[in-house]
Design a protein around this nucleic acid. Structure first.
Lengths: 254, 254
DNA sequence: CGTTAGTTTGATGGTCCTCAAGCACTGTGG
DNA sequence: CCACAGTGCTTGAGGACCATCAAACTAACG
């Protein structure tokens, strides 16, 4: 149970509500079907009927959609504690592909597992709905990135968001984090060409705001970066770790 | 109860699964708190703590995020049967504003209502999770619009998506639909300037693919439009008859 | 009949894409 | 030990797409 208490998934869910022993047990049970995926082997592919979902235990993954013209848009980057393909599990067919960014360890979750868990712990249904909602909030914020921010702002915002998400599960800090993404992947996530992504990173580095190099993101001047990006982490709804400007502190529900 | 059976919300949920009488009753109860909002009065505003959610009974609404520089990005357009702000109800603060597009009628839903409903009908929790998932799929598809499609493709794709969604709730057809949006709103949804949105609409009209005029969208040549947009409605999860089942809880099948 | 909201068109220029090429590092096999 | 290929990063040049600025036009409305 100490293992469960420190798992990234439990850390994340605890940002929603303190979990009871029973709920922790249901979560533990939900994660019983462990699997490993290596680089190059998709977990879910676009169009797959009745896809399962996964909880990412370690490593990074990403979800993307391909177009007929070969264009690729990464919809979400997932870090430990995140669901993979949760929003596909109830759709008839997966609307996107999920692939590992590095070798990963996951727990497989079938639709029936969810249904069973919901019956056992209605509050867990709320918690999972929260996770999906938070995910949608992140996609929505990316939409603002692509629709209304310049390439530099987008990049800054995205790197800050990843930092905040990683901090929540204990894998990042205000000064930086390990980031296994390539510049191609960053570009596909931000709707840029890889060439331009590279130029933008250079600019951020030369202006001493953030450095992306050798699989590591360093925040050289986090404050200015936040200002440039217009980054307000409220949408991540994780009052715990570092945003303290939020004081909405009404206590948990029934 | 035939009133409930023909409400847009029930029509939509029926695309997920055939609903039992008990579930219909729980849904009916969920919609008991009716309200009206007129143009100019927001339902939810960005930053609002503990916002409620709504079910849109009639009229259109949209959700948007503002930036400090005055830029606006519409994240979602909602039509009858859709939830409003559902993904905010579990976050501690609303991450976006919801405003009417025309005068609307809604049913207000509080967090506790959801919790209660989940306890009464676990399958309804699945259905609502489905609705949220579908919503995320739509936002993701919009992300592809903004990231990887040209302005014309975006516009075509968006107008087709709206048509499909409206058809599901009985307010649209393959030839067109009533659309109360202004070109400014279209532009804000698609990450374009209103000037360019106008040019794009003109192009689509002159090439005889679709006409947007006087509050009505007409598909002049739907086939070519679908080709141009690369529109594949699979992500809406509403195609064909609906042989759905969760667990062994159903009778008929393919 | 002035005001306002929405639509339409023109002109100019910036952001970012595309094409192209070179560099650095790693692993592979002769 | 040295090609050689593969992957990822970096930089340059030219041009397309779309934003911005500006202004005219229409319809609704008091």
């Amino acid at each position: 149970m100490r293992a469960a208490n420190s798992s990234p998934f439990v850390l994340k869910m605890s940002a929603f509500a303190a979990l009871s022993c029973k709920e922790l047990a249901v979560i533990e049970r939900l994660q019983r079907r462990r699997r490993v995926f290596v680089l190059g082997h998709d977990l879910v592919h676009q169009g797959q009927p009745e896809p399962p979902a996964y909880i990412l235990l370690s490593g990074w993954a990403n979800s993307y959609k391909m177009q007929s013209d070969g264009g690729r848009q990464i919809v979400d980057i997932q870090v430990p504690g995140d669901f993979l393909g949760l929003h596909s599990v109830l759709l008839h067919r997966a609307d996107h592909t999920v692939e590992p960014v590095v070798d990963i360890e996951v727990a497989e979750i079938k639709k029936e597992d969810l249904f069973e868990a919901f019956g056992r712990a209605p509050r867990l249904a709320m918690a999972i709905l929260w996770a999906v909602s938070r995910n949608e909030a992140m996609v929505a914020e990316r939409l603002v990135d692509l629709g209304r921010r310049t390439a530099v702002e987008r990049m800054a915002h995205f790197l800050l968001e990843l930092g905040a998400r990683l901090t929540l599960v204990g894998e990042g800090s205000a000064t930086g984090y390990a980031c296994p993404l390539t510049q191609y992947q960053l570009a596909d996530a931000l709707g840029l060409s890889s060439v331009h992504a590279n130029r933008v990173l250079r600019q951020l580095r030369m202006e001493k705001m953030t450095t992306f190099r050798d699989g590591y993101v360093t925040f050289d001047d986090r404050e200015r970066l936040v200002g440039l990006a217009g980054f307000d982490p409220a949408y991540l709804d994780q009052d715990g770790p570092f945003p303290r400007q939020i004081q909405g502190n009404d206590k948990d529900k029934s």
